[in-house]
Nucleic acid binder design. Sequence first.
DNA 1: GTGGTTGCAAAGGCTTTGCAGGCAC
DNA 2: GTGCCTGCAAAGCCTTTGCAACCAC
Lengths: 134, 134
Amino acid sequence: MGMKRLTKQRKAVLEVVRHARGHHPDAAWVYSEVRKAVPSISLGTVYRTLDALTEEGYLVPLSRPGEALRYEANLDGHLHMVCRNCNEFFDIVHPLPDLLSGVKAKYPEFDIDNVQVEYQGVCPKCRDRLERVK
Amino acid sequence: MGMKRLTKQRKAVLEVVRHARGHHPDAAWVYSEVRKAVPSISLGTVYRTLDALTEEGYLVPLSRPGEALRYEANLDGHLHMVCRNCNEFFDIVHPLPDLLSGVKAKYPEFDIDNVQVEYQGVCPKCRDRLERVK
DNA sequence: GTGGTTGCAAAGGCTTTGCAGGCAC
DNA sequence: GTGCCTGCAAAGCCTTTGCAACCAC
């Protein structure tokens, strides 16, 4: 494998995801957005580029049952809350206690190097809607 | 929607997932297993049944980027460790501090009712294999 | 100039769904 | 007997991939 090239497509995709803070977009959304800057880009290239950027550590994939893969540009210490009704991701900023060391000591056979914490519940919009139905 | 019926297919699927403790099987695996008990069952029925059992709270879906959905029969307080190499899930038993109340107080607009903690790293098998390559 | 990258379109994998017959209640 | 459930197969959706042209280096 040779060196990565900085094509306009790759730049544009990274730009789009980076400016989508709080949006957690999937490939289809990135595609429709990035076409505004690079109209000739193909969906296949968007998928390939999202893959590559993830591989290189610029993006983090977010997966939910039955949903298309979403991406997030960077997570400087924030967490996620997922609405079980609309499946939307919301960013949560809150300090966490040390969850790693205890488990690492207990399970030394695993090279554990990361914990991911995800809150689940119902977002305000969906709560209101469900309230109205009830 | 009427009452749920206890067909042999539904019983067999639940049985298979329940006996797969620590296996975290996907629909294809459940299908191949359940055919031993109910040879005529179809893959479609397996999908429908896994969906229904999830809806009813008997199963929990586990999703990983680019992987088929997996299921788990019940998680009486255990956590998961995911190998970033083979994508396998491993059960972890370890007490957790209260992660809910602080966030709930900080984000009252969300009806948060659950936290999911997932450890990430490399499992023993993959570590050995990667070691050998290095 | 060279080889990674792209656009296009076809293929792939997983999951869902319409329908007629079957079976639990 | 009623209507939920099943098997079958087709369709759907998201994602990947082969290939020739293209362009960043």
